[in-house]
Amino acid sequence: MKRFFIVLLSITVLSCNQNKKEENKEPEVKENEDAIAVEPDGGIGNGALSITDHFIKSIEKAHKKDKFSQHKAVSFYANIIFNGKEHLDGKITMLTNSSKIRIDKKDDSKLIYDGENVYLCPADANDQGARFDMFTWTYFFGLPYKLSDPGTQWEMQDDRMLNNTKHSTAKLTFEAGTGDAPDDWYVIYADPKTKALQAAAYIVTFGSDGDTSKAEADPHAIQYKEFTTVDDIPFATKWEFYGWTSEKGMTDKLGEATITDITFLEDEGELFDDPENSKIID
């Protein structure tokens, strides 16, 4: 009988010790199924994303790039004011991969990019800044979907303040021969919580013939505001333009744009065909 009580006591002590271990055990932390794995130190090992790739993918995910790309084309109206003057008022239509673009201006002139050439119609319309208009505003609109395009190069930078909040930033540059202005660069600001694109500092080197000193001396920035959703995809309906320096961030306000009537199209039809009574803009 004595031996029975000793055995029973031993079992009870072991059971109590096991329960204490279970109580002190750290709760299991399950990975968020939506989380994007990140590899430290530039992404060396195990195939996880680098910090830079994670930055890009997080923005693309926040802006529903996969869903955006499922549509054939998108159109929107843009009213752009710069330095107190109306720079553009018209309807912009573009394939979601940006390979074709059309701008129908309020004065009834048109700009069409068919994937090879930029056409101005009618041929005697004002062509000042035509090629700049063709590619600049569509790039700003489509920027969240252009971050991993061929020819893009990235460098993570220090956090920067925007609206009194620290934002992750990275610098985007381009390989030689990429697009119309491969010497351009952008500093991309991502929201610390939503990861959405909030702003981008940039320089405009188009037409500089390789001399970027003027553009480098006067960077600008675009800030995206007043987001709305179309087909569950977020779009900024207010753009604000500012001067910008690396030290101060946003400085004087230079202009703004209002974006309305964002509509997806599933058939491009003849929208991007070469128009009659037009000329090619080099």
Rank of each mutant, 00 (worst) to 15 (best):
S58C: 03
K25T: 10
D274Y: 15
I51E: 15
L143K: 05
F227T: 02
T152R: 08
V187H: 14
L9T: 06
I44K: 14
R3N: 06
A125H: 05
L147D: 02
E216I: 06
N117T: 10
P219A: 15
V74C: 02
T229L: 01
V204W: 01
T93M: 04
E247A: 13
D282H: 12
P150R: 08
H87G: 15
K279S: 14
G243Y: 01
K166L: 14
I101Y: 12
D158L: 11
D232C: 04
T251I: 00
D114P: 05
L271G: 02
K20H: 13
L197A: 06
D218P: 12
M1P: 05
I280Q: 09
A196R: 09
K67I: 09
R102M: 03
H71T: 08
Q223A: 13
K64H: 11
W137C: 08
E86R: 11
S69M: 09
S208E: 12
K238V: 04
E266L: 03
K61R: 11
I233W: 04
F76I: 00
I262C: 01
Y139L: 01
N126S: 08
P40N: 13
V13Q: 03
M250W: 02
L111T: 11
G129D: 09
L143F: 04
D191T: 14
P234V: 04
D184Y: 15
E175V: 07
I80V: 09
D209C: 10
T138V: 10
T212C: 06
A125T: 13
F5Y: 07
L254W: 03
N277A: 10
P182T: 13
I92G: 15
T173P: 00
H54R: 07
G42M: 12
S10T: 13
M134W: 03
H87Y: 15
I112L: 07
F272A: 03
T245I: 02
S50Q: 06
Y189S: 10
E28A: 04
I112F: 05
K2L: 06
D231N: 06
A62Y: 01
D267T: 15
S148R: 14
I222D: 15
D274I: 10
L120D: 13
A123Y: 06
K85S: 12
F174Y: 10
D218M: 04
V74W: 01
K30I: 02
P27M: 06
D159K: 14
W137A: 04
G142Q: 03
T93L: 08
T52F: 01
K25Q: 14
K57D: 13
I92R: 04
G47R: 05
L254P: 00
Q198V: 09
S168Q: 08
K195H: 13
K238S: 12
S148T: 07
N164V: 04
S10H: 07
D107M: 15
